[in-house]
Amino acid sequence: MSALQVHPCGRYRHNTVVFILAKEYNLKNLRTIHRLDRLTSGLLLFGRTPKKARSMEHQIRNRQVQKEYVCRVEGDFPNEIIECQEPIEVVSYKIGVCKVSPKGKTCTTTFQKLGFNGKTSIISCKPHTGRMHQIRVHLQYLGYPVVNDPLYNHTVFGPEKGRGGNIGKTDEELIRDLINIHNAENWLGMDGDSELSMFKPLKGDLDDGKVGNETCLADEDGDMSREASPCEEPCENDVQPEPSPVVVMPSRTKVTVATQTGHEVPDLTFNSDKMTTDQHCYECKVRYRDPKPKDLVMYLHAWKYQGPGWSYETELPEWARVDWTEDD
């Protein structure tokens, strides 16, 4: 799975993974067991019954489940097995960013190189805890960030991109710069009221375990976590996107999940009579830019999950071939 909301929450209600599985494959009443970061592909587990879901959740919380990911990182990763035990602290739940910090919670990830193509390395990642963005933050700290990580492979963390924990700025400065950088990269724009921002603090938003209108969920170690924002980075709202051209296609009598998942041609005819806005509604004011295909994939893949008496494994993506290059 990649770039889809797992279940309805916060600002997402329609076309989630749970919704698609119910409509397209008649898999109804699935129970969410865990989630992946928005740009992470790979294995996603659901429970068919409440009893099974609770059993697997219990196994995850008690660290009875072994997880293995693969990713492509910058540079020639060391040949020996690397175990990173640096504690991770959440800098901001609001924009979803973490860093290695002595004030953080303990966590451990084991890394092993699988191959090197002369420029980037494919590595196996085994997280032994479940901190927010754990693999990505540990790789950033080691100096081998995921090749196309839009957040942790960025000079906003300093000229060395946060290697060795060397950021060189306060948390407040980091958050400010992340917002400004993201704003310049034009992920979303805003109509009208600039005071309506999803990244302006809401009263008690961190005290009561909520992020905006989203309720945070605890990971297996008790950390508070939440689904990543649409860009995995902060989004301030100054830039106005160019309106997308209207594509007129033959009208359809019904819009289904199949039209939204590419199984059928959707009806893209624009009918202005159906367009309504509310001047007080935040969602009505936001204009999203359509992301490019490369913006919807990060070279981090949930490969294998194994627990007491069970195991699941996915096929590896093309970019995980040792000899794969960006030109492919």
Rank of each mutant, 00 (worst) to 15 (best):
D191I: 12
T16R: 03
G212N: 15
T109G: 02
S225D: 12
P308I: 11
C107V: 08
P201C: 09
E172K: 15
V239L: 13
P241M: 09
T108G: 06
Y144R: 00
V137S: 01
E172N: 14
L151D: 01
L300P: 02
C231P: 00
V248E: 12
P250Y: 07
E80R: 07
S272M: 08
F111Y: 08
L45W: 00
E160C: 05
N26A: 14
L43Y: 02
I88D: 00
E160K: 07
V147I: 07
C281H: 12
V257R: 04
H138Q: 03
G10V: 08
E160V: 08
E283W: 14
N15P: 04
K23H: 10
A3E: 06
L139C: 02
R287W: 12
C84Y: 02
L300K: 01
G204M: 12
T120R: 01
R131I: 06
E24V: 14
L30Q: 02
Q306E: 15
N26T: 09
G168F: 06
E83L: 05
K113H: 04
W324D: 02
P145L: 05
R226G: 10
V257L: 10
R131D: 05
D207G: 09
I181Y: 06
H301C: 04
K210Q: 15
I122L: 05
I81N: 04
S225K: 09
Q134V: 07
M1W: 04
T40H: 05
S121V: 02
L30W: 01
H301T: 03
T108Q: 11
G222F: 11
G262M: 10
Q59W: 02
L139E: 01
E214T: 15
P293D: 10
V248W: 11
V239K: 12
L36P: 02
T259I: 06
L4S: 06
K119S: 11
S194H: 13
P291H: 05
T170Q: 04
V18S: 09
S197C: 15
M190G: 02
R289C: 03
E83I: 14
D37C: 08
S55G: 03
L268S: 10
S244C: 07
E236H: 14
G42C: 08
P201E: 14
V17P: 01
W303V: 03
I82F: 00
V90T: 15
L114N: 03
G115Y: 04
Q260L: 15
I60F: 15
W187Q: 00
T40P: 07
E283F: 15
D207Q: 13
G189F: 08
H182R: 12
A218S: 12
C107W: 02
D191C: 08
S244E: 14
V257H: 07
G168A: 07
N29K: 12
R176I: 08
S197V: 04
D328Q: 10
P159S: 09
P87H: 10
C9M: 13
L43K: 03
D328S: 09
D290S: 13
C281F: 08
P293M: 06
E264W: 10
N15F: 14
R61W: 01
C9V: 10
C125R: 00
T325I: 12
H133S: 02
T325Y: 08
P127M: 03
D328G: 04
C98I: 07
